[in-house]
Design a protein around this nucleic acid. Structure first.
Ligand SMILES: [Mn+2]
Ligand SMILES: [Mn+2]
Ligand SMILES: [Zn+2]
Ligand SMILES: [Zn+2]
Lengths: 126, 126
DNA sequence: TTACTTTTGCAACTTAGTTGCGTTAACAAA
DNA sequence: TTTGTTAACGCAACTAAGTTGCAAAAGTAA
């Protein structure tokens, strides 16, 4: 079940995402909002936002959770199956709006795929 | 620093890998060897085997660590950058010996990429 | 306001993995 | 075969991300 009431915590989380282009880790959000929102609430709100198609989540190489805004997802369907890029220098993570074509895999039915690419971002590759 | 002495724990870990075609999670290895090897040792041996190019590791969707045999890697270089496949039905995980061509990503230097594909394996897709 | 129900904070818990340290066991040299 | 060196080990305690249960607080519609 998604979001039903417009509460302060939800507004605060949403404004973090609207002030940001890239992805934000759950840990970073907890840190940023620590004065105003409890970490349990942060996790719970993120869950609900994801459930509603407002944000999507993925894990980085060290297994921690990141969230980014969705473009046109709904409670019924998530379309965000794009790769994510993590800069090995500055740590920034963002969504790549590109399609990666997976070759056919013999005898296997593909349902989902997650692609994490690491390297140097635009600002860090000079 | 990699493996220097051929100890019992190392032999036991190695035999788990030689008796298996797919990947094995650290947790599963700890469970299987719990009577003979301490979990700290399991983690430390896996680290060293990876360092020596004997196995490679990756995280699954829930962030837990899996290990699989390498083909022709060494201490100096890991060549295993293939995708991994996890069956959503039986949980089995294995290496896919295929190449996935990533499109060029504007303004970014790609160093590494990790691809986890999920779906139904050969035995589970009937 | 009131009544109802969702959402929140807090503390306690879970789980995968790590660290420090004293003991054990490889293994090379004697 | 014994001995000395030190890598590897077991154990207990710890870390860190995320989860759970429950009582209190805050939305919302009446
Ligand atoms: Mn994304
Ligand atoms: Mn592999
Ligand atoms: Zn960068
Ligand atoms: Zn299967």
């Amino acid at each position: 079940m998604g979001i039903i009431r417009k509460t302060q915590s939800i507004e605060l989380l949403l404004s973090e995402f609207s002030n940001s282009t890239g992805a934000i880790s759950a840990i970073e959000l907890i840190k940023r909002l620590s004065a105003k929102v409890n970490k349990t609430t942060v996790y719970r709100v993120l869950d609900k936002l994801e459930d509603d198609g407002v944000v999507h989540s993925f894990l980085d190489k060290s297994g921690i959770k990141w969230y980014a805004k969705c473009n046109s997802c709904t409670h019924a369907q998530h379309f965000d199956s794009h790769p994510h890029f993590q800069c090995l220098n500055c740590g920034k993570v963002d969504c790549l709006e590109i399609e990666v074509a997976l070759p056919n895999i013999p005898n296997r039915q593909v349902e989902v795929s997650q692609i994490l690419i690491q390297g140097n971002c635009e600002s860090c590759s000079k």
